[in-house]
Nucleic acid binder design. Structure first.
Lengths: 144, 144
DNA sequence: CTACAAGCTCAAGTCGACTTGAGGTCAAGA
DNA sequence: TCTTGACCTCAAGTCGACTTGAGCTTGTAG
């Protein structure tokens, strides 16, 4: 079982070293030891980081991700809270799909002003009235 | 055609007055005039705010929303950029669906540690390798 | 006419998730 | 042994989207 230093982890996951340290500080991950000052991680760190990346890409805060599946893999959230989160995700998905349709329409519709296009307004009316039971957040997911 | 003051707009849209002023300052919307100091808005503001809310709920920055459909309704973005954004949304949707499945599994799986559950790891492996062509951001979408 | 609630402006603050920078440490190669 | 480069810590900074607070203005009800 090979131990990885932080540069190997960043290489294999694309997660910045500063972010990894940040996650450790917040208790989302733990290093298995040190060589001198340098952190050493077990191979499971790769899955854990994939999970953190996925969770935060989906709009959960680090604290929420931590609650969903902590470093030990045991969720700190109740079953009900997890189901609520899954429902939130479904609503978020609906919204995204809705916006995607709207954007497609904008790209294709010849009307000079979309607000005057009845189809656009109809699409617009469909969305945005449901409440989320837990917070969902959004931040930069990726670039170019 | 009735004019609305800012409190009526917040009432009908749920968007805070401070946010509305912020959007105006950033050029996403414009008020049609003033009564004394107080801003007056035309009824189209309701659709415009719905659009802004939807767009930013979907992870776009205010600048991006502004580009997608400015206050005049004419998109400042090329058709290609719009299609790219729509594709990004599709990828984001995939990720969200993926995480939802993972969370459902976490809620239902009896394994003490998810990292040891083969199904969990299989689900985990499926996601998180696609690139977005434009930035997608995430922020607070709603609460409770 | 006067008071007041509601809005206004402008500057500063907040929050989350990192990033950056200064200055320090240390394992390993020459 | 000496040097170096990779890492370290800790404090401070950044970014976006607002929110908050202080102090000012004004249409409208009494």
């Amino acid at each position: 079982m090979k131990l990885l230093d932080i540069s190997e982890v960043t290489q294999q996951t694309g997660v910045a070293a500063s972010a990894i340290r940040h996650y450790e500080e917040k208790g989302l991950i733990t290093s298995v030891g040190r060589r001198g000052l340098k952190r050493l991680f077990g191979p499971e760190i790769l899955d854990q980081l994939a999970l953190i990346t996925l969770g935060s890409a989906a709009g959960f805060s680090l604290d929420e991700v931590k609650g969903m599946f902590g470093p030990d893999g045991r969720p700190a959230l109740s079953r009900q809270m997890l189901f609520d989160k899954a429902d939130d995700l479904d609503r978020q998905i609906e919204q995204l799909a809705h916006l995607r349709d709207l954007i497609h329409h904008v790209a294709e519709c010849p009307a000079p002003s979309h607000m005057e296009c009845p189809k656009f307004r109809r699409l617009l009316r469909l969305g945005g009235k449901k409440k989320l039971t837990t917070q969902a957040r959004k931040k930069r997911v990726g670039k170019l």
